[in-house]
Design a protein around this nucleic acid. Structure first.
Lengths: 181, 181
DNA sequence: TTGAAAGTTCACGATACCTTGAACCTATTG
DNA sequence: CAATAGGTTCAAGGTATCGTGAACTTTCAA
């Protein structure tokens, strides 16, 4: 789950000797967590950078700070934007896009989980149903087996519900966290 | 997330023409879910096979039914055994190991999540703490930034708690499911 | 004790995913 | 309306991960 990145040569950037170490640590830490949750490490790194900087950043600045390619920044920020954890703004007077972070990245986790889990749950539920129907067609399938298939289906539903509950709970918790701070 | 398997040639097996289609469907469905949760597809397939069969199976039988290599069956079943979702039993009169499925695979998800998440959370918490301390050392770090770092730490804690809650909840739910069926 | 079958390990090859970067669009600006 | 910098796409290459199967170790029966 921990991947190494060779981070070759950036396309045209010069090394940012200004990048404070603690900022790198934060970005990488968030990257790790985000990766654990099934996203790309760089989704977390880009969001974290924008979050700690608090200032709108251009694609070029992100690219340099995190040592990413031009294309990567484009794709990553498109994803983050779609998930509503990053906003694209146009600074007054500038003819260039800048990115700013929304205050929490849970919408990202929540939304994409819903999408992915949703599609999966539907397909698997269908497959289990099909299997159960097939099994009922056979005479040599005993009752205990049928019961186990039914239990498996209900287990799937249970996971689905627990998931929803988790998502709802985390939503509540972040609100509470906001109040406290 | 969906992977294809070429499933080359098995080491010495003959094709099991007896394998009912519905059984394959069930194993693959569970495999998909398990994979979504960050495990190997074959962990789910082996457990599901043992679960629907209800009968102790030898490694050779598992190997043939799921078209796995000898080594794969050995490693997969070792994992499942460690996670307490599969038991290794010795049938009376036989000098060979057989495997049986425990009734639910949530302990697997729960345990390994605790392990993985636990290690990650500790490391990330440490990293964020280090970063925050470093940032406090700099004079050119404004208060808002420090506040954001603190918020990030509390967000990490929040995720940890939500996770714990999810694990606890799923435990309760499976019990309820058992009662109902 | 010894032979053979069962079971395990691990280097290698295959697979899937991620990133790169050059070619390609699109947008401002002069 | 060019010219050019900003922005996107996607095929090719790199990297991590997984499964294979032969070599190795263990276990069991005679």
């Amino acid at each position: 789950m921990v991947k190494g990145y060779s981070s070759g040569e950036r396309q045209g950037g010069t090394d940012s000797l200004q990048q404070p170490l603690w900022e790198v640590l934060v970005c990488d830490a968030v990257g790790e967590v985000i990766e654990f949750w099934g996203f790309k490490r760089n989704h977390g790194r880009v969001w974290a950078l924008l979050y700690v900087r608090q200032v709108p950043m251009t694609a070029a600045e992100i690219q340099e700070a995190l040592e990413l390619s031009k294309g990567a920044v484009s794709m990553i920020s498109r994803d983050l934007e779609q998930w509503d954890v990053v906003r694209r703004v146009r600074l007054p007077g500038e003819g260039i896009w800048n990115f700013v972070a929304e205050v929490d990245f849970l919408p990202m986790i929540r939304r994409v989980m819903r999408e992915r889990e949703g599609a999966l749950v539907k397909r698997v539920a269908q497959e289990l149903e099909d299997a159960e129907r097939m099994a009922r067609g056979h005479e040599d399938v005993n009752d205990e087996t049928l019961e186990r298939l039914a239990r498996m289906r209900s287990l799937a539903r249970m996971i689905e519900h627990a998931m929803e509950l988790f998502l709802k709970t985390s939503q509540l918790d972040i609100k509470k966290t906001d109040d406290v701070l």
